[in-house]
Design a binder for these strands. Sequence first.
DNA 1: CTGAAAGCGCTTACAG
DNA 2: CTGAAAGCGCTTACAG
Lengths: 345, 345
Amino acid sequence: MTFRDEEGDMPKGPTSADVAREAGVSQSTVSYVMSGKRPISPETRRRVQEAIDRLTYEPHAGARALAGHRTSTIAVVVPMKPEAGAQRLMMFVEEIVLAARRRDHDVLLVTADEGPAGLRRVAGRSLCDAVVVMEVGTEDERVAVARSLPLPVVFIGIPGDSTGLDCLDFDFEGAGGLLVAELADLGHRTVDVLGWGPDAVAQGINYVPRFERGARATAAERGVELRWHRPAGEADVRGAVDRALDSGEVPGLVLVTAIPETLRALSDRGRRPGRDADVVGLATDSEAESYGLTAASTQPRDVSRRVMERVFALIDDDTVPGRGPELVPAVLARRGSTRAARPAG
Amino acid sequence: MTFRDEEGDMPKGPTSADVAREAGVSQSTVSYVMSGKRPISPETRRRVQEAIDRLTYEPHAGARALAGHRTSTIAVVVPMKPEAGAQRLMMFVEEIVLAARRRDHDVLLVTADEGPAGLRRVAGRSLCDAVVVMEVGTEDERVAVARSLPLPVVFIGIPGDSTGLDCLDFDFEGAGGLLVAELADLGHRTVDVLGWGPDAVAQGINYVPRFERGARATAAERGVELRWHRPAGEADVRGAVDRALDSGEVPGLVLVTAIPETLRALSDRGRRPGRDADVVGLATDSEAESYGLTAASTQPRDVSRRVMERVFALIDDDTVPGRGPELVPAVLARRGSTRAARPAG
DNA sequence: CTGAAAGCGCTTACAG
DNA sequence: CTGAAAGCGCTTACAG
């Protein structure tokens, strides 16, 4: 209703000098009250705090960054391609923002398609104190750049060469093993895996080989035969299901992706998970819940939480060297009708 | 492989003073070369640019913000609840980031659950030059705060009282009208609308009443009877479909949400869209495409693009008053088998 | 436990 | 077309 600029000059907002004057102390005391970096008498602290509240003072972020050599900002590099599963992505990001806010930090959003240049930019311009890179590839240019930057970079995902790097991820290898073991326990001698398509493999998505390694190792151990079905594209998901069903037995299926589509394809062929098929998968808790799936649960929030712990450890103590890869354990969650399922064989 | 801090002191990165020395000009000239705010001789410009490149100089964002009174950052307030449709959300956000980057701006990510305090914080700390608030409610505390802030706030969505505000959105009222008209054109005298649940209504999601108003107006105009089915919850989606099908005729359905579930429910009852049912909906282009749906297309990218045009218009000229609501037109996209469908009646 | 002052790295009048 | 200098609003040695 009113003009934004009623008095003709921008409302400037109070500075720490204003607060100092109001509280009858020096500017440095105001600063130390806010940072807690030196002892302040209770009386002084109270007066300063009251002045801050009265003036609704907020420190100027840029001035603080310039003088203090820290921005209180974490940059996060996000792959903005919805194929990656927008929902999972949001869970990662949400927890990153929440963890940052708990430490009174902000989050700068950078898109992955800026590539290595994005890392150089946010570091060069002193836009942040640390950066989180989501979905690092097996071979990823950003890894080399990260090593050369003068600020901490934490990766979600495990690149091929992770020595001296800070990276962590859900334990996809363990997950692959758990899922195959689950079907083996149910009596299956043959397990059909509906895996990632050739595109995911080509992109160097780092968890694909790790999952497959874990599945293979356990299959070998348990004497189970693994049949891989890699849909050529989205359209081939049903085809892969068809192929798995054509053996005639009650199938044991491991799903790593395209879960609703796969379940629909099963249902269209009259197979009820838990009765006519044993279906387990790689899924978030909420996916497992809504599909009644036994799942090796990938919990984005847990991973993000650990990532942010690492980030702040590195910010707080910049002598800490890269701690190398850290894996968030896979947990098998049995749900819904799959639970008591028993195969025919 | 090397320690992050090899020489014992942080690599400081070149400053504009270094560039000035290297190019044999003053610091102010470096600044003016970068900003283009005053004429520079070609020869000087070249020397400075070469020095910048040679030193890989990047300006310190905080120093720039402090001296220049602008941060080159846009804050975006995002509802991090996946119910809102993570995929749509990502499309909005992606385009916001891209538009910001085109103008060499960065994006600060703020979660909606900070509420009005989040707006006060990013403004008070001078963390950004403008803020975009996604999914404003019909009654939303953030609107009043926005009016009082000394920087531009642009809303996605149309709040109840939008006078003097900068807000824009997809034209849901027009979309409601288009969809009902489409079914009327196909000969339907009765249209079943699978609408939002009572929770969405209670939350004050601003586009629900707008859509319903548009649908009702067109229904009255065309002499069509509207039957609303508001699923009580996710579990009731199939129930709503069942109720719509129980009339016995070839139904005309308008879907506003839960599209895959609804289509599955239809298919389970043996109804093929475009033959045994005419189905239209509110959807993004990619949803319409993959479900073969005639859709009033909601194009997040278009909306974001317009939002960012507004944002930069306000940043570039801070005397512009709030322009009030702007609606991005609804477009009806006919796709797949629905196209030639004709009802029995 | 507190203060006076230098300095962080830019931008922008002011001056020529 | 260009330069010298003030100043943006903080933090942090330095001093007491």
